[in-house]
Design a protein around this nucleic acid. Structure first.
Lengths: 139, 139
DNA sequence: ATTCATAATAGGAACTATTCCTAATATAAA
DNA sequence: TTTATATTAGGAATAGTTCCTATTATGAAT
């Protein structure tokens, strides 16, 4: 059968994807919610979460999780690394080659099948370095 | 034990560290709480969390965060990779060389200072593969 | 040993991110 | 138009973690 005319792209789902792309720098679900609200005022948080989950399964987005509890989303789906600021939680891309997990042997993974890898560096972003300096802190 | 208790290592803090070591395989705060309870019945969740935070700062433990929301803790503090099962959340060590971030240039990190890296592979552990097969699923 | 200042505690409330539930609505196919 | 089903908004529920507070334990100084 050819293209099944199902509801593959509801307005809300498209709004979620668009919002993520327009924000462009690893937004959280909350960021995406407010951005999508600009298009569809009535959109709800659960709709955002549900569609984010769907878009991740469809490989339109990748989730990034680091030391913070929030999940960030990236519409750039090629294999690359991220760095997250320990202070403010901000996430940025890194210009270092991503880990290639295609060569990982089953034995290396102690019985696991491997389907992905998430490389997240941690550190302090420029803004937060400045703030720390200003306060003369060091903890 | 009869060693003089100092402020630096309260009974509870030591119980938290011991529990993590005895569990040995990347326990969550909850796992550690119940294990530590075997030593100190009255220990509370907040004491576990507070001491886990302290132990991480003191570099006695490292926190592991992956696709799931829970933080796992590792008492093996040398640089190594982990793999987490998408289905059950289990974490295991990986026999692949860890990413060496000592050569990361500031320019690569777009103004960030880099202080660590977390490499977490994702996949499905043997147990969960079996369960999936049993159910005849494939998603 | 008693007093004192303070570090650490237990317990629980509060918080945050996320998931779940349900009745209502929108959509495509018949 | 009718029907079956996907999707929705809204809010309740959950899970993991942090925060708050009165109380207790500790080491130092008397």
């Amino acid at each position: 059968m050819e293209t099944k005319p199902t509801r593959r792209g509801s307005k809300q789902k498209m709004a979620v994807l668009d919002a993520t792309k327009r924000l462009s720098n690893h937004p959280t679900a909350e960021d995406i919610f407010f951005k999508a609200k600009e298009e569809i005022v009535s959109i709800s948080f659960s709709t955002v979460y549900r569609n984010l989950g769907i878009l991740v399964k469809e490989k339109e987005l990748i989730p990034i999780s680091g030391p913070g509890s929030e999940i960030h989303y990236d519409h750039v789906i090629n294999n690359h690394c991220h760095i997250q600021c320990r202070v403010c939680g901000k996430v940025r891309d890194m210009n270092v080659p991503a880990v290639d997990f295609s060569g990982i042997l089953p034995s290396d993974a102690s019985g696991f099948t491997v389907d992905g890898v998430c490389v997240t560096f941690t550190g302090t972003c420029r803004d937060c370095q400045v703030e720390t300096d200003t306060k003369g802190e060091q903890k």
